[in-house]
């Protein structure tokens, strides 16, 4: 594989035409899906993930309620058609469960669960297309869905994947690059700069770590700008839509309306 495809060619371009530090296109669709409180479809290039948030709501299983904070429940499903090779993963696949618990651990420091004792926040993630950076896409989608659902967050959580190809760092890897290059995923909370996740499934030389880590963290800040712009845009649209409607008879203020007739 590596012999046929050059990860980084002499001109400094990668296999999909990007430069070393270039991120893929990001598409954020925050439109309403079904009865979810917050939902998003997020694409990083060809990787596409949809996330829906329900809650905080009454826990379906009483054993899961925590008396001092909300319980976060994350379920991840990989669509059978999401990869080149059609493959059905069972719900109890070890890797999938592990993946979900990684995401849960990432968000536990970011969600203000203390405000909702005895409740449950359900997050359903559906991986629709995989082309590298699935974990980063899932984390970013979850952040956006949580923000859209009005769940109190300490900050956005922005995740980016980075790798090192023979001493030159790369950002936002595709499947092709992930198979070939040692890589890591970092989730950063941009306001404080706290890192809520750092995973490495491959071996990376310790001397390279510092550089790629710094680079990925700063890429997280770039993603943060896009994510907050999308959230602000949605808030603005909704607020504008609400103000268009005519007011009720004699209504001065929506909060303190005085209506003449209620026959």
């Amino acid at each position: 594989m590596a012999s046929r495809v050059e990860i980084l060619n002499d001109g400094g371009f990668r296999s999909d035409g990007r430069k070393q530090y270039e991120l893929r296109d990001i598409v954020i669709d925050l439109s309403q899906q079904g009865s979810a409180d917050g939902s998003v479809v997020l694409s990083h290039g060809l990787t596409q993930v949809s996330a829906s948030v329900f809650g905080p709501r009454e826990a379906k299983m009483r054993s899961q309620t925590l008396h001092d904070r909300a319980n976060i429940n994350i379920e991840v499903t990989f669509a059978p058609f999401s990869m080149g090779e059609r493959r059905k993963r069972s719900r109890n696949d070890k890797r999938v469960l592990d993946f979900a618990s990684t995401i849960k651990a990432t968000f536990e420091p970011a969600i203000q669960t203390k405000l909702y004792p005895r409740s449950q926040i359900d997050i359903y993630i559906n991986v629709l297309q995989q082309d590298g950076g699935v974990l980063q896409a899932c984390i970013n989608a979850t952040t956006l869905a949580l923000a859209a659902a009005g769940i109190p967050l300490l900050d956005f959580v922005c995740a980016v994947t980075g790798g090192v190809q023979s001493a030159s760092p790369l950002l936002d890897l595709t499947t092709l690059e992930e198979n070939d290059v040692p890589h890591l995923t970092v989730a950063v909370m941009p306001r404080t700069g706290n890192i809520t996740l750092l995973t490495m499934e491959t071996r990376l030389h310790v001397d390279r770590f510092e550089e790629i880590f710094q680079l990925v963290t700063s890429a997280g800040h770039v993603l943060h700008k896009e994510m907050k712009a999308a959230i602000k845009d949605r808030t603005r649209t909704l607020v504008a839509a609400m103000s268009v409607a005519p007011k009720a008879v004699g209504e001065k203020d929506p909060l303190y309306s005085e209506r003449m007739d209620d026959s």
Binding site: D25, I26, V27, I28, D29, L30, S31, E226, A229, A230, D233, R234, R236, T237, V239, A240, A241, S243, V244, K252, D253, P254, L255, Y256
Partner: peptide, 27 residues
Amino acid sequence: MITFTSFPKSKDSFSYTAAKFSAVDGN
């Protein structure tokens, strides 16, 4: 390079300048 489709097109017709919040108009 970066594209956004954060909401269906239909709602773009509402201009933001029209937005006034409940707290603003005098109570």
